[in-house]
Amino acid sequence: MAFGDHEGDKSRWIVSQCCENVAEMCDSPLNNLCCGAGGGAWAMPYTEERLAYGKHKADQITKTGAELVIAPCHNCRDQIMKGLAKEFDMGNYKETMYIWELVSESLVYEPWSEEEIKKAHAERDAQFERDGVELEELE
């Protein structure tokens, strides 16, 4: 993904399949802003600058009125959840989820059949034996 390539449209589609009321952060993706933790900034020691940068994103989140924010990457998620949410009042904001977390939580599926479970357990046991993982401690 890079600025201006509109790859984010795919993420928007995925989110729209999981949620009914999706709000955009701003009028156009070309007007949007990094959360402030990109390019390794989440791991940098410049906390003050990272939060000042993220103030733009915090303001956007507040204006959406949303309770749930979806992040497409580990650093965005940590910045919004552990950085911005603690530093700024973001209105209705309640939580941040990874986009794959949202998909996972939205899934409706059937558990596997007895036959599939048996086959998977046999594969698992063979793998544990190969790798020397002790089964007793797990059961």
Binding site: A2, F3, G4, L30, L33, C34, G36, A37, G38, G39, G40, A41, M44, Y46, E49, R50, Y53
Partner: peptide, 15 residues
């Protein structure tokens, strides 16, 4: 300077 490290390489400038 610390500017290249506070920059998040978001590429808005380049765009």
């Amino acid at each position: 300077s610390k500017f290249p490290w506070v920059c998040t390489l978001c590429a808005r400038c380049e765009y």
